[in-house]
Design a protein around this nucleic acid. Structure first.
Lengths: 170, 170
DNA sequence: TTCAGCCTACCTACTATATGGTAGGCACTA
DNA sequence: TAGTGCCTACCATATAGTAGGTAGGCTGAA
């Protein structure tokens, strides 16, 4: 998986084990393919967030699970989440794809804002400033941490970047 | 400027106003071109860090200037720093380019670690945890913040992401 | 001083390959 | 039968790159 520009029908075809033209049949343009991939990714991620909130009662536990989701997505430094992969090449992206990116961001910020609000209330996250500001910082931190781990193909880069955030979880 | 894979001799030729083949003359392969670009970027950035440290006596002021450097590099959301642009496509990068990425990261972490150490001492940054952990988090935060601003082509995404960090500066 | 050689920085013209895509077809299942 | 999911064969264009060339400036030697 490269960035958007390095992402090709040929690579995907090889990965899935069908011919390139077959993918074209289902997704006539690269833009429609990217949109579908990103929408699927976003929906799955939303389900993951719901699941986290359901299974964990405290903000600290939710945040820890969220960090883990990002870390697991790294697959040892081989992958990053689709939003991180696609964002640098945003000028190549169609409007519907950009919309998906935006929705992903909004959904993440909303979820995290609630977590930080809860964290302030239940005391399971220490030193919570304004919850929305914390949410924006947290999302940026994780995307950047994925980037660093990806560049170095080394998960410990991610771990180093989130250590302070983790230490705030009670 | 796309990611690495979307970065082409043709684009650069147009930008610089000479023919593609002329660039090939100076940089025979894309890898050598990327390496030269990244090395130049890294050296300039190191000079910027030196300049900041020279002009600002307190850690808080240094950190603020550092944040500003990243924000200015966004050019209103049109650009991100080379390391952010190249990292997702890291599998396409040659070893010397990867080395430059690594050096950039190390140089940033080292500089930021000193800033956070100083911040602890001079009190100009509040609640400093382990300086090296703070440094790793800060770098990730800024790279992620650039990504978010780039995706939305909107500098306020960056501002939102770094607000908490800024509030810690005295 | 002049000239030849070298260097630098650009050029035109071309190439092999990969990309996103098109057109038409086959096979299987409900 | 119709629809779905795959296929082969092909195409136009963009990419990274190759080969050979020109022009101007500089330097050193005669």
């Amino acid at each position: 998986m490269h960035g958007y520009d390095g992402f090709s029908y040929a690579d995907l075809a090889q990965e899935v084990g069908i011919r390139k033209a077959s993918i074209h049949h289902h997704f006539p343009t690269k833009a429609s393919l990217a949109e579908a991939l990103l929408e699927r990714y976003r929906r799955r991620f939303a389900a993951t967030l719901d699941s986290i909130a359901t299974r964990h009662a405290t903000a600290g536990k939710r945040l820890r699970a969220y960090l883990k989701t990002y870390r697991d997505a790294l697959a040892g430094g081989e992958m990053v989440c689709l939003c991180v992969a696609f964002s640098p090449g945003r000028d190549s992206l169609s409007d519907p794809v950009l919309d998906e990116l935006k929705i992903f961001e909004e959904q993440s910020i909303a979820w995290l804002t609630e977590v930080f609000e809860l964290g302030r209330t239940d005391g399971s996250i220490s030193s919570v400033a304004a919850p929305q500001a914390e949410a924006a910082a947290c999302l940026a931190l994780l995307e950047g941490a994925q980037l660093l781990a990806r560049a170095g193909k080394n998960v410990s880069r991610f771990d180093a970047a989130v250590a302070v955030m983790k230490s705030r979880i009670q």
